[in-house]
Every structure is written in structure tokens, then in C-alpha cells.
Design a protein around this nucleic acid. Sequence first.
DNA 1: AATGAATGAGACTTCATTCAT
DNA 2: GATGAATGAAGTCTCATTCAT
Lengths: 245, 245, 245, 245
Amino acid sequence: MPRPPGHGPGFEVRRQKIIDIAASLFAQQGYAATSINDLGRAVGLAKGALYYYIGSKENLLVEIQARVMGPLLSRARQIADLDTDPLLRLRLLSESLLTIIFRRLDHIWVYEHDYRSLSGAELKTLLGQRSDFEQVISGLLAEAVDQGTFRAMPPRLATLQFLNLHNHTYQWVRTDGQWDAAFLSREYCATLFRGFGAPDHALPKLEEQAEAFKRDRPELPLDPEAGWNSLPATEQPAGPGSGSE
Amino acid sequence: MPRPPGHGPGFEVRRQKIIDIAASLFAQQGYAATSINDLGRAVGLAKGALYYYIGSKENLLVEIQARVMGPLLSRARQIADLDTDPLLRLRLLSESLLTIIFRRLDHIWVYEHDYRSLSGAELKTLLGQRSDFEQVISGLLAEAVDQGTFRAMPPRLATLQFLNLHNHTYQWVRTDGQWDAAFLSREYCATLFRGFGAPDHALPKLEEQAEAFKRDRPELPLDPEAGWNSLPATEQPAGPGSGSE
Amino acid sequence: MPRPPGHGPGFEVRRQKIIDIAASLFAQQGYAATSINDLGRAVGLAKGALYYYIGSKENLLVEIQARVMGPLLSRARQIADLDTDPLLRLRLLSESLLTIIFRRLDHIWVYEHDYRSLSGAELKTLLGQRSDFEQVISGLLAEAVDQGTFRAMPPRLATLQFLNLHNHTYQWVRTDGQWDAAFLSREYCATLFRGFGAPDHALPKLEEQAEAFKRDRPELPLDPEAGWNSLPATEQPAGPGSGSE
Amino acid sequence: MPRPPGHGPGFEVRRQKIIDIAASLFAQQGYAATSINDLGRAVGLAKGALYYYIGSKENLLVEIQARVMGPLLSRARQIADLDTDPLLRLRLLSESLLTIIFRRLDHIWVYEHDYRSLSGAELKTLLGQRSDFEQVISGLLAEAVDQGTFRAMPPRLATLQFLNLHNHTYQWVRTDGQWDAAFLSREYCATLFRGFGAPDHALPKLEEQAEAFKRDRPELPLDPEAGWNSLPATEQPAGPGSGSE
DNA sequence: AATGAATGAGACTTCATTCAT
DNA sequence: GATGAATGAAGTCTCATTCAT
């Protein structure tokens, strides 16, 4: 969206380069911790000139997030509209999502960490896009349930598991590592589709055991904070019968 | 650990209350966007009195994260040391982790979003604790692979899937909803354990199909950004000779 | 000056001890850089109790300076009133002054460095005392000039040389060293009295030489800043006749 | 040394002007008591613009002291390296030192009073320069002793007397008065060189008298604080048996 | 006599943004 | 197109002082 009417031919090119660098800095140091001065130094431009290109700092955030969500949503819809098995479409969509995570890791960091720095209108747009993307996935999962490939389960729960598994990847992924988007997609889908699909006899005793544990071992509660205050201390109050006698 | 030499009996109580409120504000607005003035207003105390309790803003971050990681790591180690099936221990650990996510949702938000605001020494402590927790999980997963319950897979990959699925939960979970930690743990473990365990025949054709798709449909690449510049624009020349003919 | 009417017997004792400690802290860190908290910690008293004794921070400064100037001025007058040679009285006064510098080095540091932190009324008192002390010395020096022991010189100039030599001592003196007040007094007076007394033929050529130097070596001015900007650089502008030809 | 990469031509000029004004304010009110707001008001610039020039408040201190010590040390070394009588060189160095005291009285005040506000690294630099300057003087004085012009005396003691006499001058000197650096230098050197040089017979009886006084008049001790507690108070019991009997 | 708790002014500093040139 | 200079709000933190208990 070129703002002032009338710009030289290099304007948009340079503008995109500045957003690239901004995304990189924001990802490394955080949006709040990156000053316009930092950006200027990295770009090699004084502050005044920077504003000629960027409009405002918040606007950089908007652009960075548009870069991620625009193509992703567009491609997701194309894939969802294909005329094939929902599992295949989920698998393709998974790889598509992971591809952008690998390629635009900087942007994803910013997207995930600093979206709350957006003001009302922009935030609303962003949340709408997120919701749209979720619905594409929900639809495909529902198809798979409907056709019996997946066992019945709350549809939102399946969606959230799909998203958890994929979206948290940016936290640890390395673009210079041995894994790529195709590999991770294969693995994630293998886990999810088997996990969603297998009939209910696979892990029969596990839940029984868990119930038994919780019943029989009250002194070891699963709540990590239960009795936390007294854990490190040893001042067991010397109940009856203890001590010398 | 009372800092100045003398403190009245109410000091620690009030201090904990202030940390509670800080966690809530940080979770809502972000650490950087929450000023000490905001906190003072929320607590009902002037700035000076606030510093009497908190020491520094960064110290609040340290305390919030210690509240999460201390109990969690302690309990995780207790569970890992139990003399039972690794799957059961993973299941219990999963519920333990989800329990603290449900109970301390504020803290988890801060923990996940603002840990980079910590300075060197404190950050190192935190990353060490994170790594310790990961290793507890890795150990249990390795046990399950060794005893043949899970199929062979890169051990770090299994760990990361476990963590992705659980750790991203804070992004959407609602403490007032219908789901609780025990339910989510049941579902997550069902997905993961079936996904990790099923023999390799379950999804035979899927990867073949995916390969075929990528080969046969080059005009619909999985990379969301491929050809992105020309997509939203309308100047698709749609010249002669394009498309199948 | 006991302030509130009615104080226990230990009040004044403790008060003096607090002023001792305050002088020590002020001397080490400076008045502005020493907080009431620091003082409380050093004294072993909470802030509230401290104020019961000290009244205010500035009041400590007043007390510290009164401790120095009160005894000194009193003793100086006693010595000046003795019925002996002015040189002996100057010598005794010198030792008296150096004695308090050695014994109350802390106080002297504060006295010399932080008197400008005093507000109007207190500052006026202090400056009056300083002026009184100077006049005692001026009087003795005038006596010595009048009786011909010293050569004629501007009386204020002699006074200031006496004060310079003594008053700057606190900057480097060590109370644990080999020199004491009596030794320094002997040396200072030896220098001053010989310097003031010797007839004017002792250094005949020195001033001639100095005049000659200033006249003949204009390229090495005594003003340290003359030509300072061009000193480190070498960009001598290549005047006429220099260079190749 | 321009800090940020680019600066206009007026930058350094204005920067120097700001340091001038800062030195003036610091000298009048003290470094700690002068706020950046005060400086901004005096300069006619808002706080933000001020920081554009100064970097930090402490940096002003560094610059002020560099302005004094840089030229002074440089010139002192040039003078010490001259091929003339050490007395002449001391005389020239004395005038050089007094010249900068007269010209940069503001800076000298700051230099003498607030050097302890410097942080570790900067403080070390400063103390090193002070020590270098002292050594130049010590060397010249040692030369004069070696060639027999001065009587034998502890070398450090001679140096400290030289420095005391000169360095304390800033406390009372008036740049609008009748005395100038050349005059004071003449007088100081007359005092010091005669005082250092005169043979040991000049003041024979003085020390004998002083000894006698201390022995014979114990009720008038030179220590100003001896018996101080009872002096100003009126509760002198003056009981029987006190005093000589 | 003493304490812990509270206050509010003010300190230094950073930063997004604007504008004349 | 680009720059250096300027602004003013806001941020974190310190500190002398007061007061109920």
C-alpha cells in the first residue's frame, strides 16, 4: 500500500528491504526493545529518512504480520478447496504452514510475540485472520471425522492439537539444521493422524492406572504447587510417637 | 527470602499479593507495556512503597518464573523417579504440567512471552531449568522406545512434539471452560502415545499421495509465498498459451 | 543542642555516636551519595529511630562542621592571645590546625567538600567562622610583618599561602603514616617563615630568567591551552618558504 | 570524537558550549546538586536534545576533567623537558598551573570536588593523570635537591607542599581581582624556593620555644578538642583541687 | 525509643515522532 | 530523498521524610 501519491521507482524495493531488517531485529530483541535508532543503524539510514518509508513503528508490525498471514491464508484456502482426501489436504496444509515457519522464522517470532502491541483496528484484522485459518483446519478435520477416518472427538480439540503441534515449532526450530518442512510435516501428520484415527482399544489400561495412582498416592499430588511451601523444608511437626521415648 | 534485614509479619503476604497482580498485568498487556505506575495503581500503592516490596521490575519477572519452574521441576522429578511404566509416568507428568498451566495461566503467559527481558544471570538460570525439564521428558520417552512401546524415532523429535502439544496450550485455554487438566492430559496422551506407537503400516499411501501432488501440480506450490507478489494483484495478464490446452 | 525537651540519659551519647558514623560515611562516599538508609544500616537503627536522633540530614552537616570549627576557633583565639612572639603563636596555631586535621580527617573532608549543601542560614554561620579563623591568622602575620621579622608583602597574600599549605593537607594525609601533626607543622612553618622572611636578594636572577623565557620562546606559551586544538594534529598550514622550492 | 556516525558542522561547537555551561553550573552548585533539567534550562534546550549532545551526565564530568588535565599534562612535560635550571622550570610550571586555574576556574572546582562521582574506569584514568603530574614536579624538585640548590628533605614532602600551595588556590582566587597567574607564581615560588633552600640556621630558637610551650603549659593543649566538651558548657564544677595548686 | 510502612517529588535516561533545510 | 536537530512524554528507580503503632 504505497502511501503518499508519487514515489520513485526504488521506493517499494527499499521499503521491503527495511521491513526485512525490521523483522530480523524485532525477532532478535523483541519489538519493544528495538528502537527506531537501532533500525536506522541497521538499515544505514537516518531517522528522518526512515520515517519516509515506514510511516510509523507500529506500521512495521502490521506489514510483518500481513506478510505472514496473507500468503498463508490464501494458500490454505487453495489447498482446502482441492478435490482430494481430507487427510492429504491436511498433510499439504501442514507442510505449507511449516514451510512459511522455516522460511520466515523472523516474522513468525514477531507474529507470535508482539501482536499485542497492535492497536485496536489492526489487532482485530489480525485476530480475524487467525480465526479464518483455524476454521480452514477445523473444516478439514471435520470432514475426516465425518468420513470415519478419525474417531469421534470434540472438533475444536482436534484443531487445537493440530495447531499446538505446528505453531509451537518456531520456538526451537533451526533453519540451518537437518530437518526441513517436509520432514516435520511427515512426522507431525504421522503422529496426529494415527493418534486421531486408531480405535479406542490401543491404550486400555493407561487411564485405569492413572486413576489408581491418583487414588492411591494422595501424598504425591499431580498439582506441582500442592504442599509446595512445605516441600523443601523438613520441619515435620514431630507427630505422636516420634522422637525419643 | 526477606531482603532488607527487618520486616514485619505482613510483608511477605503483601509481597506475594503484589507479585500475583503483577503477573496478571504482565499477562494481559505484556511486561514491557506494563509500567510500574500501572502496577502501583492496580495494587493501590504509590511507587515508592511498591519498590519497598519488589526491589525492581525485573525481579518481578524472576519471581514469577520461579513460581512456575520451581514446583514444576520438583514434581516432575518426583514423578520420573516412580517405579512404574514410563507411559504412566508420562501421563502423570502431562497432567502435572497441564495443571500448572490451568492454575497459573498468567504466569505461563509471562513465562513464555517475556523471558527475553531477563538479564544475563537470571536468563541463564531460567534456560537451565527449561533444559532440565526437557531432559526429564526425553528420558521417559527414551525408556518407552527402549522397551519397544514406541516405534524408533529421533528422540529429540518425540520430546519436541510432546512439548509443542502441551506448551502451546496456554495460548487458547480457558480456565472457566468445560475442559480441565485431567481431560486435556488424557486426550493429548492418547494422541501422542498412539501416534508414537502404531506400527508403520497405518498411513501407507498418504506420503505417496503427497509426493505425487507435489510432482504433478507445480502450479500450486506448498510454499505460501511462491508467486505471492502476483497473486493479490489483478494484473494477471492471463495471456494466450497459459493453462492447459 | 538537645532538641525535644525531655530525653533519656543515653540520648546525647547515642546521638554523638551517630554523628561520628555519619561523618565517616560522608567522608567516604560524599554527602549527596550517602542515603539515610546507608546511615541506618551502619548505625544499626531503622530510619524512624534515626530521625529521632538526627532531626534531618542537613542537620548532620551542621553538627559535623560545628565539631570542627567550634574547638578550632576557640583554641585559635586562646593561642593568638598568648603573650609571646607572633612566630611562636603561628607555629602553635599551625600545629593546632594540623592536629584536628589528623584527628578528624573525616570531618575535614566533609567540611571541605560539602559545605555548599548547607542552606542559607547555616551557610552564613559557617562562612563567618571561616572568616574569623582567617582573621586570627592575618593578625599574627601582620604582627610579624610589623616587627620586621617578615618582609613587607600584601597581608592577605601571606594569609592565603598559610591557609593553602595547611588546608590542602587533608587531600593526601594518612593518619596511619609516619608523619604526624607536629612534624608537618615544623616543616610547613620552616618553609613559610623562611620564605616570608628572607631578604629580597636570594633569588635575584630567577625572575629575570622567567621574563626572558616568556619573551624569547613565544612558541612555548605557559598557558596550557594555548594552541591546544592544533597540538596533537600536525596540519601545519605550509606557510610561505616551507616545502619544496 | 563524534559519537553517532553523522553530525552536522555545528554539532561540536554547540557541544563545547554545553560543556562550558555545565562546568559553570557544577562549579556553582556542585555536580550532584545540578540536575539535567537545570542544565537544560541554562542551555535553552529540552532534556532530549541535551542528551543528543552529552551522552550522559557522567560524561560531562569526564570531558570537563579532560579539558583540564589534557593540556596541563602536555604543557608540563614540555616544560620539564627544557634544558634549563630546574628552578626556572619549576617557576614556569607553576605559572602554567596557575594560568589554567585562573582561566578555567569552573573546571578546577569540578575537578577538585566531584571527581569521586566518576565510575571505575574513568576514575582510574583521572587518578593516573594526577599521579603523572605529581611525578613531573617530584622530578624537578629532586633535581634541585641533587644539585644542592635545595636542602635535603623528604622528596614527597616537598612535592606536597608545592601542590598544596598551588592547588588550594582555586578556593579563594578571583579572576576579576588585581592578582594574576604570573604574580601568584612569583610569590609562591619566592616562598617555596627560599623556604626550601635557606640553610638550617634561620629559625633556630623557634622549635625550642615550641617544645618548651608544650611542656610548660599543659592546660593549653594544642589539640583543639582537648577538654572541648567542658569548654562551651557552663557546668564547670570548678570544684576544689582543680587547676594548679 | 523504635519500627516498618508509606509517600511524593525528583533524578537520569530513552524513545517515537516531527520538521526545517 | 535525506539529514541532523529538537521535543516532550513516559519509564525506572532513589530518597528524605513522616507517622501509626
